[in-house]
């Protein structure tokens, strides 16, 4: 049943020092639909492709807002992401209540990393099966972080998670200069949608499956859904 003897749990190293269970959790991200995140000096944009199980069901939420200044898009197990969203919301309101301040995004991402790392070193429980692209603003400007089930959290200019995300990543790598210096939010969103389009196979973007969110130095975290995304299709 198992591929080898060393992949049954998170507390067993393989002879080469790998943790297969954690690597498999990373695979769960790829089961999810694509999401792309990218930033300029002033804005961060998240773009996601929503999925529905069958024609009659609604679309699964792809982007979750966790406070006035931050939110994330997800790929992988959505229920796991909701747990992490609740955790983030707690941290955000703690900082608001106790210090009267906006949470530092770097600090927040370290807390998430810490939470995820625990699941990779103890037998009980399992690693989170979800990857997040966290977009937010704080006193030090705008930031985009990628969260992984391994407990790694890295700050990037752009990233893509989920099925066929490589195409999106390649677009982001090739166009880094043009969107990094981009002043306009609209143009940045267009870059995001273009990156997303690189990864599409059978799907077409519609008002019901495209989800967009942005945050900027002078803008709160905002989700754009439904007919409001029509102009970006």
């Amino acid at each position: 049943m198992f591929r080898n003897n060393y992949d049954g749990d998170t507390v067993t190293f393989s002879p080469t020092g790998r943790l297969f269970q954690v690597e498999y959790a990373m695979e769960a991200i790829k089961q999810g639909s694509i999401t792309v995140g990218l930033r300029s000096k002033k804005h961060v944009v998240l773009v996601g492709l929503k999925r529905n199980d069958d024609k009659l069901s609604s679309y699964q939420k792809k982007i979750i807002k966790c406070g006035t200044n931050l939110g994330f898009s997800l790929s992988g197990l959505a229920p796991d992401a909701r747990i992490l969203a609740n955790f983030i919301k707690q941290q955000v309101s703690y900082n608001e209540l106790v210090y009267g301040r906006d949470i530092n995004i770097q600090k927040l991402s370290e807390l998430l990393a810490q939470k995820a790392q625990k699941t990779t070193q103890t037998y009980s429980g399992r690693p989170y099966g979800v990857g997040l692209l966290i977009a937010g603003k704080d006193n030090t400007g705008v930031h985009l972080y990628e969260f992984q089930p391994t407990g790694n959290v890295i700050e990037l200019y752009g990233s893509a998670l989920g099925a066929r995300s490589q195409g999106g990543k390649t677009y982001l790598e090739n166009n880094l200069e043009s969107y990094l210096e981009e002043e306009s939010l609209e143009e940045l969103i267009k870059h995001g949608v273009s990156a997303l389009k690189q990864t599409l196979k059978d799907e077409t973007l519609t008002v019901s499956n495209l989800s967009i969110a942005y945050v900027g130095e002078d803008q709160d975290f905002t989700i754009v859904d439904g007919y409001d995304v029509e102009k970006y299709l």
């Binding site: 210090y99 009267g100 301040r101 770097q106 704080d138 006193n139 030090t140």
Partner: peptide
């Protein structure tokens, strides 16, 4: 870094 997150008086006071 260019943009350090300093401890501000109002954070300290609120705390």
């Amino acid at each position: 870094s260019d943009n350090v997150d300093e401890l501000q008086p109002d954070y300290i006071f609120t705390y």
